[in-house]
Nucleic acid binder design. Structure first.
Length: 478
RNA sequence: CGAGGUGUAGCGCAGUUGGUAGCGCGCUUGGUUUGGGACCAAGAUGCCGGGGGUUCGAGUCCUCUCACCUCGACCA
């Protein structure tokens, strides 16, 4: 089919080999490149620009909900890391250690932060004394290091960029409210900004964060039917406070332990964008996170007046969107492919014929739909089209997720779905760890979450047949 | 940490029974081109991942080592 024909051969087809497709896209869109250290990547300007847009919008939403940014050191003394038992155990296998300063061995080795709970706690114990000091709503943007055995660009790297919010509250209820508030910030951000629909829910005990009392998550479904944990929010109860001695004098003159939360999202979100929206021609960016929303490609740019018109349009359109002119001396076809690989949502072609007719050709990245628009209407039409694209990408992703969400009442059914049409599987669960373990051993799938929106698929646990307590989303995950 | 794979020009790769390094793309210069990856001409680019060995001679054989990729077990 001429219409279905691939324009770009440099990218492996998704259906042929999804993992290779992902690697090709990440490289061809020039989001990152490998570095000389295992599992670490160089985030290239285009990839970093996406991260900056994510940061900017999230940071705005954090501030809007009353949070302040701080910066903690990247080193954690070993003794500090060890104060909360579950927490150390969870992270011990993947921490990197600093043992020397110059030539001298350190008296106490320093851990390169895999997450900063212990640092925040150590600080909070000093600054929290009275109920009047609460709540503390801190966040930090930083990188963390986890010595991973297997790494993949953006999805799992040894060092990654993220944001970690850490808050302290006077009561459990308040901490729980904060935990859910931030989960909601994440879910609305993903849906509105990244055009990625998410399932909100709680992690099972097996899957929860080391040291947390409860972990909440947003789970999204990738194009290949695998799930991606896209953000988490934890309620620590007073567990860390007890381990670190974070106490305050309450209104009733009683000394009490404080309640805490933490929550984070990372550059992994970039991986989610790629795997939710991308296609065989490469990256597809929702306009809200596109560093370039509109690329102007002049055609026959050597012809008098063409480039001038392109620059003029850029000048005008820069007031309503992020726009660039590709005035390199590549062939137009080459530019089309290049900007499609990079996922630019909208392309504007302008050549002598257009100038004559006082119009331009707009081409949508998501479906290559061509629109002929009068030059006079651009400032009005372009933002409208971009917002349509944003909406359309969300709807497409939602439709895909719904198409790939199944229900199962037996393990055989689950296994069949996982092998034939991988996706989310809604199934009942009795609450026993043993059943989770069994599912994982047998079909490499995990409990993604106990969704807030419960449904009753059946009365019995999909695994052991005992009375069911919850409906779970199951799936194979990244 | 297990299983596999790969390291040769910026990128992708070839390199035979061991004989002193090549192709495509990209890059530079000039010209012609330009509505879906143009063409011609002239150039530039190498610690053959690293150490040790065998040999008159190693990209090639042996050995140790390092790194990266993919797939699994563990984790954002």
């Amino acid at each position: 089919m001429a219409k279905e024909k691939k324009f770009v051969e440099a990218i492996t087809s998704m259906n042929e080999d999804f993992a290779q497709w992902y690697t090709d896209v990440v490289r061809k869109a020039d989001l990152m490149t490998y570095s000389s250290v295992k599992g670490c990547m160089i985030i290239r300007p285009y990839g970093y620009a996406i991260w900056e847009l994510i940061q900017k919008e999230l940071d705005r939403r954090f501030k809007e909900t009353g949070h302040e940014n701080v910066y903690m050191p990247m080193f954690i003394p070993e003794s500090l890391l060890q104060k909360e038992k579950d927490h150390v155990q969870g992270f011990a296998p993947e921490v990197a250690w600093v043992t020397h300063g110059g030539e001298n061995e350190l008296a106490e080795r320093l851990c390169v932060r895999p997450t900063s709970e212990t640092l925040f706690c150590d600080h909070y114990k000093d600054i929290v004394q009275s109920y009047r000091d609460l709540p503390k709503l801190y966040n930090q943007w930083c990188s963390v290091v986890r010595w991973e055995k297997t790494t993949r660009p953006f999805l799992r790297s040894s060092e990654f960029l993220w944001q970690e919010g850490h808050t302290v509250h006077a009561t459990y209820e308040e901490a729980q409210e904060e935990t859910i508030r931030m989960l909601n910030v994440y879910s609305s951000f993903c849906e509105e900004f990244l055009a990625i629909p998410v399932v909100k829910g709680q992690k099972t005990d097996k899957e929860k964060f080391a040291g947390a009392q409860a972990t909440f998550t947003i789970e999204s479904l990738m194009h290949d039917g695998k799930a991606l944990q896209s953000g988490t929010s934890h309620n620590f109860g007073d567990g860390f406070a007890r381990a670190f001695g974070i106490q305050f004098l309450d209104r009733d003159n009683q000394l009490k332990y404080a309640y805490q939360t933490s929550w984070g999202v990372s550059t992994r979100l970039i991986g989610a964008i790629i795997m939710v929206h991308g296609d065989d021609s490469g990256l597809v960016l929702p306009p809200n996170v596109a560093p370039v929303q509109l690329i102007i490609v002049p055609v026959q740019q050597h012809v008098e007046g063409v480039l001038d018109k392109a620059y003029e349009l850029k000048e005008r359109l820069s007031k309503v969107c992020r726009v660039k002119v590709d005035d390199s001396d590549k062939m137009p076809g080459w530019k089309f492919s290049e900007h499609e690989m990079r996922g630019v949502p909208l392309r504007l072609e302008v050549g002598p014929k257009d100038i004559e007719k006082n119009q331009v050709v707009l081409v949508k990245r998501e479906n290559r739909e061509k629109l002929f628009v009068s030059m006079d209407e651009l400032e009005e039409k372009v933002p409208q089209i971009l917002s349509d694209i944003q909406k359309s990408l969300y709807e497409k992703a939602l439709a895909h997720r719904e198409e790939r969400t199944f229900t199962a009442t037996t393990l055989d059914e689950m296994e069949k779905i996982l092998n034939e049409t991988p996706g989310f599987i809604k199934a009942m669960w009795c609450g026993d760890r043993a059943c989770e373990d069994l599912v994982k051993d047998r079909m490499a799938a995990t409990a993604r979450c106990i969704p807030f929106e419960q449904e009753k698929i059946s009365d019995k646990c999909v695994c052991c047949g005992k009375e069911a307590k919850h409906m779970l989303y199951w799936g194979r995950a990244y």
